[in-house]
């Protein structure tokens, strides 16, 4: 099971009318891998992620996520993945505890499991004192960390993180990446998009989309070597321009 593919995509394509948003992309992501999914605005990243999360039916091609088919088994996919984005995460008008209970509930955890998870998260995130506070009253950095913890509350095989660190201060951004590493070391696969190119370097492998295709895919060090660049920022500029 070490080399189990958590994502497998072959010639995956999505068209909107005559516009090809995702043009026959093929790639796979292994268990426990941190996979960076980069690309310019409008390159097709969001469309690709929507297909992989079972929210949008592909026009053609094949893909499985956590072993489930993106055409026929979208409900199974939704139960076996976690998702977090900068825009959509926690309910602002619910308290910390209520959010944990709510997400635990919709992911099918038992009352006992929810109780244990709540205690565990309040302790590890050091937010026990804030457990009855509304999410909207918390600092952004706390919210991001809690949102991530809640996205993996059901021990999904894979978690999709869509620009999780946008607008966060540099210290919190780094603490957040430590959490990502910890989850990955527990075997959860991490699929992450970011506009911070230093964060691309923290990924095991990175793909860069441009005009609907995957223009490059490799480890950060091999990409830098191939494109004769010192940083992932330089690699990105060379490919996306």
């Amino acid at each position: 099971m070490e080399n189990e593919n958590i994502i497998y995509a072959e010639n995956l394509t999505k068209k909107f009318g005559s516009f090809v948003a995702v043009n026959s992309i093929s790639f796979s992501v292994k268990k426990g891998e941190i996979y960076g999914f980069l690309g310019a605005n409008g390159a097709g990243k969001t469309t690709a992620i929507r297909m992989l999360c079972g929210l949008s039916t592909p026009s053609s091609g094949k893909a499985t996520v956590a072993g489930f088919d993106v055409y026929k088994q979208t409900e199974n996919i939704k139960k076996n993945i976690g998702y977090m984005s900068q825009k959509f995460s926690l309910y602002e008008d619910l308290t910390v505890k209520e959010n944990i209970t709510f997400y635990g509930g919709i992911y099918g955890l038992s009352d006992k499991e929810i109780k244990e998870k709540t205690e565990y998260l309040l302790d590890i995130l050091k937010i026990g004192d804030a457990k009855d506070k509304l999410i909207k009253s918390l600092p952004l950095g706390w919210k991001q960390k809690l949102a991530f913890s809640v996205a993996v509350i059901h021990n999904p095989k894979i978690v999709f993180l869509d620009e999780p660190t946008g607008g966060v201060d540099p210290l919190t951004r780094r603490q957040f990446w430590n959490m990502i590493y910890e989850e990955a070391s527990r075997g959860i696969t991490v699929f992450v998009t970011t506009h911070y190119m230093d964060e691309a370097e923290y990924c095991n492998r990175v793909s860069i989309m441009s005009d609907g295709i995957i223009a490059a895919l490799d480890t950060p060090s091999k990409l830098k070597e191939k494109y004769n660049a010192n940083t992932m920022h330089e690699v990105f500029v060379k490919i996306a321009r």
Binding site: G39, A40, G166, H195, M197, H233, F236, V237, A240
Partner: peptide, 10 residues
Amino acid sequence: TTGVDPVSRN
């Protein structure tokens, strides 16, 4: 430039 990719930011 928030949420804008590095090329467009340049």
